[in-house]
């Protein structure tokens, strides 16, 4: 069996284990400069929900410094695919290989408890992810949430909640970002923040796979469009 080496990109540290039945291959080595730059790769991946198979025999690769924009009509399986890539769900068949450096997952839900403040939610997330909570203040400042940090999340608007969820991407640098509709509910300023964050992430040799019905606010040179459905 051919094993694939996926090195940790520059500027990133830490690791998370793969979960579910998705295979993570920490691997031996392979003499290919193309493959060695990959953060995520799938092999003959089929994804389903319930007893329906939504996507069949899918091969995706996300390299360092690469942004894949996943597009498709509602119900084609974009979210299901992202959940499988993140390791939250099992694929129907096929294999997913991910970088050892860890990933950021931003789903449709913001993972914010409405009874807790923005700061309390993020502090809990840091404890959960074993990352340094000292970066929270700067990240909140950057996304324009510093004044709202003590507000209960249930009192925030949908856009403010989305920004609070995006703060996690800045707190703990991770090479691979899997973002499901990250632009939902964001205003023009929020879109600009996300564009900046994605640009900086790609410059640090990070990679991202993003679903969005809107155009992503980044340069086209590193953007790859993947249409499904």
């Amino acid at each position: 069996m051919l094993l694939l080496k996926i090195p940790r990109p520059r500027g990133y540290a830490g690791s998370i284990p793969a979960s579910g039945t998705i295979a993570f291959l920490p691997l031996l080595s392979i003499h290919s400069t193309i493959l060695s730059d990959l953060l995520l790769r799938t092999e003959s991946l089929s994804v389903g929900r319930g007893d329906r198979v939504l996507l069949r025999e899918l091969t995706i690769a996300v390299g360092c410094g690469q942004l894949v924009h996943l597009r498709g009509r509602n119900g084609t399986g974009k979210t299901s695919l992202l959940e499988v890539l993140a390791g939250l769900r099992s694929p129907v068949s096929g294999k997913v290989e991910r970088t050892a450096g860890g990933l950021h997952w931003l789903g449709h839900k913001n993972a914010l408890n409405g009874d807790l403040s923005v700061l309390e939610n993020l502090q809990f997330w840091c404890a959960l992810q074993h990352c340094d909570a000292s970066a929270i203040a700067g990240a909140l400042e950057r996304l324009g949430l510093a004044k709202l940090r003590h507000r209960p999340c249930r009192t925030l608007s949908a856009g403010q909640k989305r920004r609070a969820a995006l703060v996690r991407l800045l707190i703990a640098p991770r090479p691979l970002w899997l973002l499901d509709e990250p632009l939902a509910a964001l205003d023009a300023e929020g879109l600009a923040y996300v564009g900046q964050m994605l640009d900086e992430h790609l410059q640090r040799d990070g990679g991202a796979l993003v679903t969005s019905h809107q155009a992503l606010p980044v340069g086209r040179d590193r953007l790859q469009l993947l249409e499904i459905g």
């Binding site: 830490g14 998370i16 914010l112 409405g114």
Partner: peptide, 12 residues
């Protein structure tokens, strides 16, 4: 409901 469960499962 709020998605915290997903973050829990992706914790180290």
């Amino acid at each position: 409901d709020d998605g915290t469960l997903e973050q829990m499962f992706l914790a180290p």
